[in-house]
């Protein structure tokens, strides 16, 4: 993702982790139905939402993401029985932790999208883009070094 000037400097950057079976297919369904979304997100596919390690989410923020979306199958529908329950618990705890780091929990969203819910996928993405646009960039890399005197 790029903050190229021809696309405006204040372009939100969102990373969306989608599981192969439901949410990735849901994103495909949104595309197939030609539902238009804002383009400021990049999908990274994993087999199940439970593969996503919270440290990678931390890294995403550190490396410039304005927001991170984790999308899995609806509870009870995980292709691997119950991976999404693990995801749910981790993300809840991570959101609480992020608040201590001064990162608004709204920047990290976990939601469920089934393979047929193209419209739901589009809505979640649009909502997230809108929410982080209000919050603005995190600019973490520089302030880490800031020395106030």
């Amino acid at each position: 993702m790029n903050n190229d000037d021809n696309y405006g400097n204040n372009v939100p950057q969102i990373v969306a982790f989608c599981c192969n079976w439901c949410s990735y297919a849901g994103a495909d369904a949104a595309g197939t139905s030609r539902l238009q979304t804002k383009p400021h997100f990049r999908i990274i596919r994993t087999m199940c939402s439970s593969r996503v390690e919270p440290d990678l989410i931390m890294e995403a923020f550190r490396k410039g993401a304005w927001g991170v979306l984790i999308l899995g199958c609806h509870p009870g529908d995980c292709h691997y029985k119950n991976g999404n329950y693990k995801t749910d618990r981790r993300i809840r705890l991570l959101r609480k932790t992020l608040a201590q780091f001064g990162i608004e929990p709204e920047r990290l969203r976990l939601d469920w999208v089934s393979a047929s819910e193209g419209a739901r996928f589009t809505r979640i993405v649009d909502e997230t883009i809108e929410a982080v646009q209000k919050l603005g960039p995190l600019n973490l890399a520089v302030p880490c070094e800031v020395i106030h005197e």
Binding site: E53, P54, D55, M58, N82, Y85, K86, R89, L93, T97
Partner: peptide, 23 residues
């Protein structure tokens, strides 16, 4: 190989919460 120890603890603890009855 771990970059962020805190979240590693977080993920392992969170993943174990109520596993038997999670559903």
């Amino acid at each position: 190989d771990v970059k962020d120890m805190g979240t590693k603890v977080l993920t392992s603890i969170a993943s174990l919460i109520g596993i038997e009855t999670e559903e």
